[in-house]
């Protein structure tokens, strides 16, 4: 059963700030959804291979050939903050 500590841990992993009431509501909702999802455990799937892709596609690669990319202006066009022709971010420490 998922608890508020689990929700706090997962929110940190996902880098989501949840306010206190949001945290409580989320815990209740996730518990309910996960209870529904737990229906899967009725099935013995141990002998069933997983499906990651529906297509049996393999070996899709591209040639090692340079193609034009973005101008620096376009690369930085949407940046919330720019410095030194680069993306500026708040202090990491």
């Amino acid at each position: 059963m998922i608890g508020e500590d689990d929700v706090r841990y997962v929110a940190r992993l996902a880098r989501l700030r949840l306010e206190q009431d949001e945290m409580r509501r989320m815990t209740a909702e996730l518990a309910k959804i996960l209870a529904h999802i737990d229906k899967m455990s009725e099935l013995d799937t141990s002998a069933v291979p997983p499906t990651a892709h529906v297509l049996d596609l393999v070996d899709v690669t591209r040639a090692d050939r340079v193609e034009p990319g973005l101008s620096r202006e376009d690369a930085l066009r949407n940046a919330p903050a720019v410095a030194d022709d680069s993306f500026r971010i708040p202090r990491m420490g």
Binding site: S86, F87, I89, R91, M92, G93
Partner: peptide, 12 residues
């Protein structure tokens, strides 16, 4: 170093 820096920039 990260320690003590007030901001960082990223070059991709």
């Amino acid at each position: 170093r990260i320690a003590g820096s007030d901001s960082s920039v990223v070059d991709f």
